[in-house]
Computed example of a mutant assay.
Amino acid sequence: MQKITPFLWFDDQAEEAARFYTSIFKNSKINAISHYGESGPRPAGMVMTVSFQLEGQEFTALNGGPEFKFNPAISLYVDCKTQAEVDFLWEKLCEGGRPDQCGWLTDRYGISWQIVPTTLTELLQDRDAEKAGRVMQAMLKMTKIDIAELQRIYAG
C-alpha cells in the first residue's frame, strides 16, 4: 500500500468519475466501493467512497457534497512516452471538459490534468539554454503539446 493517496472530493459523481478514469488508463481498476449508512450525512445507500487505481497509483473518490470544488492549484501530471499517448489521453479527458494552455486540461469533473510528453521535459532541461528557451516559448503557445513541433523548434 502506498503511503500517500490522493483523495478526491466530488459532489455525487465519485463512482462515475472513477469508472470514467479507469476506462481510459491501462493497468487501472476499481478496488472497492463503500456506501453511506443510516447515520448519514448523505442518503443511506448512496456511494460514499470509491477506491481505484490508475496505472498502479491509488486514489480515493468521495461523494462529499457540493461544498468544495476542484481547481487548478492541484493537478494530475501524466508522463507520456509518445504523441499517440498524448493525443489519446487529451481526447478522452477533454470530453465534456476544456483544454487549457501548456498541456493542461480540465476534465468534465473539474479536475486539472497535465498531459506532458517526456520529450518536453528532456528538451526543457537541455544544457543549451537557447534551445531550451525556444522550446519553452513554443510550449507556452500550445494547448495540447505537439512533440514534432517542439523537436522542429529545438533543432532550429
Score class of each variant (00 low, 15 high):
residue 3 K to D: 01
residue 5 T to D: 08
residue 6 P to A: 08
residue 14 A to T: 00
residue 19 R to N: 11
residue 21 Y to W: 02
residue 22 T to G: 05
residue 23 S to F: 13
residue 34 S to P: 00
residue 36 Y to R: 03
residue 39 S to A: 13
residue 43 P to S: 12
residue 46 M to I: 00
residue 47 V to W: 04
residue 47 V to E: 02
residue 49 T to Q: 11
residue 53 Q to S: 11
residue 54 L to K: 12
residue 55 E to I: 05
residue 56 G to E: 07
residue 58 E to Y: 00
residue 58 E to G: 03
residue 61 A to R: 04
residue 62 L to M: 15
residue 66 P to G: 08
residue 67 E to W: 09
residue 70 F to I: 03
residue 71 N to L: 07
residue 72 P to M: 08
residue 72 P to D: 09
residue 75 S to Q: 01
residue 78 V to W: 03
residue 80 C to L: 02
residue 82 T to W: 06
residue 83 Q to R: 05
residue 85 E to M: 05
residue 86 V to T: 10
residue 87 D to W: 10
residue 87 D to A: 11
residue 93 L to R: 01
residue 94 C to A: 15
residue 95 E to H: 12
residue 97 G to R: 04
residue 102 C to K: 10
residue 102 C to R: 09
residue 103 G to A: 12
residue 103 G to C: 09
residue 105 L to F: 07
residue 106 T to A: 07
residue 107 D to G: 09
residue 120 L to G: 02
residue 122 E to A: 13
residue 124 L to N: 06
residue 127 R to W: 05
residue 128 D to N: 15
residue 129 A to R: 14
residue 132 A to E: 00
residue 137 Q to V: 03
residue 137 Q to L: 13
residue 139 M to E: 05
residue 142 M to C: 10
residue 142 M to I: 08
residue 142 M to V: 01
residue 143 T to A: 10
residue 148 A to I: 07
residue 149 E to Q: 13
residue 150 L to R: 01
residue 151 Q to L: 14
residue 153 I to K: 05
residue 153 I to E: 07
residue 155 A to K: 14
residue 155 A to C: 12
